[in-house]
């Protein structure tokens, strides 16, 4: 493979990853809407998207492995392919978490509607923005944008902790709402995990562009 063909293959790899990212993002957004609107149809859509995401994960992994094995890239090209492999795994997990959220939302729909002391849509929107920003940073190789995603993670963690506290109090005070509160706790926890995966994507972008490994460095920002 000539160098031109190799760079074309890298572009193709990037495009495939973005297509998969589209499925994962759509699943997250629809799962939040399924909770907000109590819409069973959206739950169904999200569950249907999982096999598609899994198939794309395998396809992208195989493509990236081929490039590694046949081209033996170095420096920035090697870092790019390694980042794509990691981001691929993160996006697949985001898709799984979206399915978990949708299932919980579907189960909540079966129960009588109650007002819970937690702002799940806000938490969900924040997590979705993190994923989108991380992907925008990946498209442009923008380290500054990637670092802004790391800052957002703190806010999502804080919202998740406050949701946990509020829902624990609700269970103590109104035990008959335990089921609904538990579902909401799990949805908040899953959204927080979506934010964590967005953070991982942003860290991979920084690794790709600068060669710096910023994982597990709490004092970075």
């Amino acid at each position: 493979m000539t160098r031109t063909r190799f760079y074309e293959a890298l572009e193709e790899l990037k495009e495939k990853l973005l297509i998969m990212a589209g499925y994962a993002e759509q699943a997250v957004q629809r799962s939040i809407e399924a909770y907000r609107l109590r819409d069973h149809a959206l739950v169904h859509f999200v569950r249907q998207s999982e096999p598609q995401i899994n198939g794309l994960e395998r396809e992208i992994d195989a493509f990236a492995m081929d490039l590694l094995a046949l081209e033996q890239p170095i420096a920035v090209d090697l870092r790019f392919i390694l980042s794509v492999i990691r981001i691929n795994a993160d996006l697949e997990r985001v898709g799984d978490l979206a399915v978990n959220i949708a299932i919980r939302a579907g189960e909540l729909n079966e129960l009588p509607p109650v007002t819970l002391p937690v702002d799940i849509p806000r938490l969900g929107t924040l997590a979705a923005i993190m994923v989108r920003k991380a992907l925008e940073a990946f498209i442009e190789g923008d380290v500054e944008l990637a670092e802004s995603v790391l800052k957002l993670d703190d806010e999502v963690d804080m919202l998740n902790r406050s949701a946990f506290r509020a829902l624990s109090s609700l269970i103590r005070e109104q035990p008959h709402l335990t089921t609904q509160a538990l579902h909401a706790i799990l949805i908040a926890r899953n959204l927080e995990r979506v934010g964590d995966h967005a953070t991982n994507i942003a860290e991979d972008v920084i690794f790709w562009v600068n060669g710096r490994d910023v994982r597990h460095q709490e004092t970075l920002v």
Binding site: E15, L18, I19, A21, G22, Y23, E25, Q26, Q52, I129, R132, K133, L135, E136, I139, L145
Partner: peptide, 21 residues
Amino acid sequence: DAAGAMLRQGRPLVHTFRDPV
């Protein structure tokens, strides 16, 4: 868009919109 999306001219559409539909 809160996530800072932008239109990227001369590049594939998936660099701007990722909605599979």
